[in-house]
């Protein structure tokens, strides 16, 4: 199947800061593609380039077969975008903004719009200045989801939503995929991308460092396990798929690959398990482990498209 987004060697500099440094990214038609990276890695910059809001310094870009800088109007008829930091006109109501953006997008499905307003539990009669971050995000999400766009670009769409709404959002994204539409979903939360994406690209310091299906990236996902046991069992570190075992008094912690979960659980249960916490790996862990840097150190300020220097 054709790729809806094809970026090759894309470079973008802001002054002397290189935000994107030869970035390659391809998103196939009909997939939900997770775009993962720590803050400042260049996710938002990439999305803005794809939208033609920024101009690339080097590299080639094709989106839905079009040039995002030249064919803006035609391209934007076929895609919808939810910015990471949704800014609304303070005097307009949520309903007015949804309808305005819908019309500018080339029309939205009125029935779907109403269903989404209901689903996300948004009061469309309130002025935008009274909305919380989550509510502003809902306005932009509803406007985007109510269109018939072939491609949706979502920049950290759930960062302000509560868990219930996040669930509703995931349901909508799955429904989109079932209709054969494509989604590029940026996030700095591994579990979010994991829950939705068919494939994932990981960006660091302006470069995509890993791309693949989630199964291929399994090696990246180690669960962090901490347990209190009566007696500390011997030889935990020799179990397959178990790493970084640390023992302090009766507390054992370790990083465990999916294949290592069963053996370590057996061993811990046999040792008299008292408490157990397990955490999915964070992007931070992942970067630390695979690239030898803390995520926050990956870049300085490279992808920061907006900062207040007023």
């Amino acid at each position: 199947m054709a790729n809806v987004i094809e970026l090759t060697g894309v470079t973008k500099r802001f002054g002397h800061v290189t935000a994107l440094d030869g970035l390659d990214l391809s998103v196939s038609a009909g997939e939900v593609h997770g775009f993962l990276g720590p803050n400042g890695a260049g996710k938002t910059t990439t999305l803005r380039l794809v939208l033609g809001l920024l101009r690339a310094d080097a590299g080639s870009m094709t989106v839905l077969g079009l040039d995002p800088w030249r064919d803006v109007a035609e391209l934007h008829r076929r895609l919808a975008y939810v910015p990471g930091d949704v800014a609304l006109w303070p005097n307009l109501t949520g309903g007015e903004v949804i309808d305005l953006l819908g019309r500018l997008q080339g029309g939205q499905d009125a029935a779907r719009r109403d269903r989404l307003v209901e689903l996300f539990d948004l009061d469309p009669t309130r002025r935008a200045r009274t909305y919380s971050k989550g509510n502003r995000q809902k306005v932009a999400l509803i406007a985007a989801l109510a269109t018939d766009a072939e491609l949706l670009l979502l920049d950290e769409p759930t960062s302000g939503l509560d868990p219930l709404m996040e669930d509703a959002f995931r349901g909508e994204v799955r429904a989109l995929r079932d209709q054969g539409r494509s989604v590029l979903l940026s996030s700095h939360i591994l579990s979010e991308a994991e829950a939705l994406s068919d494939r994932v690209s990981i960006i660091r310091a302006g470069k995509v460092v890993e791309t693949g299906g989630l199964d291929q990236l399994r090696h990246l996902t180690r669960t962090s396990v901490t347990a209190d046991v009566r007696t500390v069992p011997e030889g935990l570190e020799r179990l397959p798929g178990v790493h970084d075992v640390v023992v302090v008094n009766h507390r054992v912690s370790a990083q465990v690959e999916p294949s290592g979960l069963e053996p370590i659980m057996h061993a811990l249960t046999a040792a008299g398990l008292r408490t157990l916490t397990s955490q999915p790996p964070t992007l931070e862990d992942l970067f630390l482990r695979h690239y030898g840097v803390a995520a926050g150190d990956a870049t300085d300020d490279a992808g920061a498209g907006r900062s207040d220097r007023a």
Binding site: R48, L53, A73, H76, L79, P83, L88, L104, Q105, G106
Partner: peptide, 9 residues
């Protein structure tokens, strides 16, 4: 940013 991501040139 919101407006220019639509068909508005």
């Amino acid at each position: 940013e919101s407006l220019l991501s639509t068909t508005t040139t």
